[in-house]
Design a binder for these strands. Structure first.
Lengths: 247, 247
DNA sequence: CAAATAGTGTCTTTAAGACACTATGCC
DNA sequence: GGCATAGTGTCTTAAAGACACTATTTG
């Protein structure tokens, strides 16, 4: 399995190395919906899944990328122009069959970015925001459907006990806006009183002066104290009866 | 960055591909301590970190391993002889500098296995069970120290709200033994009454008849209902005052 | 029967859910 | 002022913590 060059460490020779890619699942909240970024695979005979919708990503470039995280950041910047997202690793998927180009392992990250209304994507026209439910119904390239399911599951489950939805909003945001962000991701309504107690008790927000909401009374604006990590709550939310927050 | 052979997909040529490895953090409870398996790096001029302690692992073998998970299973079987562990992916670490052999990405899994008293390791003599705290103090090969920290952190944090410690015990086990397993991993005592309520309410155990504990009254034995996934509890444990469960 | 451990019951505490109430800004 | 939304207060509920109590096995 290994070929040794004189004076070097023993390593697998070129063709015995799996291909390595990085894919990024980029979530945002837009038009009262949880959305994610999909790209179109390039056309051409030398491209697998040509023209199919896929997660943004590509080969690790050993000359350009210092690390997997740096590679994910590069792809995020290329697609969205964003430079300070919440970024965490989701996991890796690798097998002999998931890519027709050969044994391939992909390192998947998931990112949460705010979107200002009216600010378009900076990257190519081949990428677009798609709401999560229709993305899940699409036939995506490679095993990106399976990866997307895992990403959505991870997001929804972490939202139950962390401050992740705050990273989907432009700052400063109000508590009602933050609650709406939770409800959009979870697809259900949350009690206002319990929600506010929990957010304020968790000490992860800094006041940023009165801010206009969508209508009615002014609300206190907030910023995230530590953008590097999400706050973790001591207990999960539970479903409430009543009107659904989905849609 | 890509080289095209006639009639094939465009892929990075051999030397431009990062190396791919899989490492496994294998935990067990033994002698009232949380332990993990460490191996010694082979000796020789062509081996990086020769003779240093490291996590068990190695290169993905594209001819032999159908997937990353299969590769992790193979390494686990080679080292411990175990074939039905709890196995989950921890994440991947990849950069230009973490391996002197070149740009390298490792896919890390963590496994929980029971150990019967007196049953030795099936693999090479170069592997041994080391208690977690001394392993964390060792200077390990590559970035395995950092990876180990992440694994221990993940284990301790998931133990707060899942049934993971059950996978560290040989079946059938009693509730007092299970509680001890929790206390060993967490390093603190848990109230017996609350513990029993929580375990029994979670519906992940099947009764398996009276079983002898270490002394005193017989206790009910239990088996894990679903060995594929851990149960998730609705709330985390909190520290109790009193004697520490560590050591 | 004593020692040791298994298992139960009861009261308290914590944080969330339900829901009604007050407060403030814009038209 | 009226409407819409922001924010608060109070009572209830779920699940865990404290801790004392009973039960069953072995020596």
């Amino acid at each position: 399995m290994r070929s040794t060059r004189p004076g070097a460490f023993a390593v697998p020779s070129g063709p015995e190395r799996p291909l390595a890619t990085v894919d990024v699942v980029i979530f945002t909240v837009m038009d009262e919906q949880l959305k994610l970024l999909l790209v179109r695979r390039p056309e051409g005979d030398t491209e697998p899944y040509a023209g199919r919708a896929a997660l943004p990503g590509g080969f690790v470039d050993v000359a350009q990328d210092a690390s997997l995280q740096a590679c994910a950041m590069r792809k995020l910047r290329e697609k969205t122009g964003f430079d300070a997202p919440y970024l965490e690793q989701l996991g890796s998927w690798g097998s002999a069959t998931r890519d027709p180009r050969g044994w391939c392992a992909t390192h998947v990250y998931f990112a949460l970015v705010p979107t200002m209304p009216g600010v378009p994507l900076s990257g190519s026209a081949a990428s677009e925001w798609v709401d999560v439910d229709s993305a899940l119904r699409k036939r995506l390239a490679f095993d990106h459907g399976e990866i997307l399911m895992a990403a959505v599951e991870r997001l929804r489950s972490k939202v139950e006990y962390t401050s992740l939805p705050a990273f989907l909003l432009p700052e400063p945001f109000t508590l009602p806006q933050l609650q709406r962000s939770y409800e959009i991701v979870l697809g259900r309504a949350i009690d206002k009183s319990a929600f506010r107690k929990r957010m304020l008790d968790a000490q992860f927000l800094a006041e940023a002066g009165p801010t206009a909401g969508d209508a009615g009374r002014l609300a206190m604006g907030y910023r995230i104290l530590d953008r590097e990590r999400a706050a973790v709550f001591p207990r999960t939310f539970r479903a409430v009866e009543g009107p659904s927050g989905r849609g």
